[in-house]
């Protein structure tokens, strides 16, 4: 047996598993896909129906009376919380990577890097608990009221700041969870840039900042995009922490940045128990459809990011401006 014949099956396990999961999700949720139709993704009405009545036939499907499923609010909440997290985490992550690669003495670097990696290793339920016990009181009593008052000119920043559970809190917790991912990849990329590049810029009279910003950082652009893709994927799929700080909104869209939300992943976890009560199985299959939509969104986001990566190739030169 050749080397290739041994390794090929091992390597294909990953791909086969992925395809298997997607096929399973598709097949399992197919009755729900047919029953819910397109309104699944454009309506806000997740309703298990009357679980104490007898199942009824509706458009050829056996369901509980009044049951209907629409998850627009989940999709919006998932995308918005991820967007907030990525928008905050990219500058934070890149900033700390620059600091770790260039701003600290070489002796301290391994220690600080160790802490950053430790941050990535903390289980998400710990973030959730910390958010619940420490961050939410601070946000709801101090930070959010201040923001609503002083940043009211920004759309969606004004209005009722609620209990502290919600979109922005979820965004913050997700930010904390994905910053270490971006930081550690970017730090490695920045450190591995050839020394000659740095020297070329310094010898031209660039300051340390100009050297970093115009020469070193642009040459790690691909790593930045790749690590942002990973981070986005993590934020989209994060379950436990956002379940604990999201606020558990059902069937309505957030009206401002503080409003309670539920993300798709958190919703699957929180609703599974109730959905299993449905004797017709339509509720669980609809939850599987939520999972399917989440997969599709991840694939689309990944694909879009990869296209960006492709178009940022060396042939198509970017700015490279100093200012």
């Amino acid at each position: 047996m050749s080397f290739k014949n041994i390794l090929a099956p091992i390597a294909s396990i990953v791909g086969v598993t992925l395809i298997g999961i997607v096929i399973f999700l598709g097949v399992y949720s197919w009755p729900a896909v047919k029953f819910n139709g397109f309104s699944f993704v454009v309506k806000n009405d997740w309703n298990l129906g009357n679980l104490y009545a007898n199942p009824v036939m509706h458009r050829g499907h056996l369901i509980m009376p009044g049951a209907q499923y629409g998850i627009l609010f989940l999709i919006v909440a998932t995308l918005l919380s991820t967007l907030i997290a990525v928008v905050l985490a990219v500058p934070l992550g890149v900033g700390s990577a620059i600091f770790l690669s260039d701003g600290v003495p070489a002796v301290l670097r391994p220690w600080l890097s160790f802490f950053v990696e430790l941050l990535a290793a903390v289980p998400s339920v710990v973030y959730g608990l910390w958010g619940y016990a420490a961050v939410i009181p601070l946000l709801s009593h101090t930070v959010f009221p201040w923001m609503a008052k002083h940043l009211a000119f920004i759309p969606f920043f004004a209005g009722d700041t609620g209990s502290g559970y919600g979109l922005l809190t979820s965004g913050f917790v997700l930010t904390l969870m994905i910053v270490p991912l971006i930081t550690s990849t970017m730090r490695d990329a920045l450190i591995s840039q050839p020394r000659g590049l740095r020297e070329a810029a310094l010898a031209l009279g660039a300051t340390r900042f100009e050297t970093m910003w115009s020469v070193i950082l642009p040459s790690t652009r691909r790593v930045l995009i790749a690590s942002s893709i990973l981070a986005t994927g993590r934020a989209l799929g994060e379950t436990m922490a956002v379940l604990m700080v999201g606020g558990g909104a059902l069937n309505y869209l957030p009206n401002n940045i503080y409003a309670p939300i539920t993300t798709m992943a958190a919703f699957i976890v929180s609703q599974l128990d109730s959905a299993l009560e449905d004797p017709t199985g339509m509720a669980v299959r609809s939850l599987a459809e939520v999972a399917l939509v989440l997969c599709v969104i991840s694939v689309i986001v990944n694909g879009a990011a990869r296209l960006m990566l492709y178009f940022s190739g060396y042939q198509r030169l970017g700015g490279g401006g100093w200012a």
Partner: peptide
């Protein structure tokens, strides 16, 4: 070692 800026034209 020649060290042109690789991301610049």
């Amino acid at each position: 070692r020649p060290n042109p800026f690789p991301t610049m034209s």
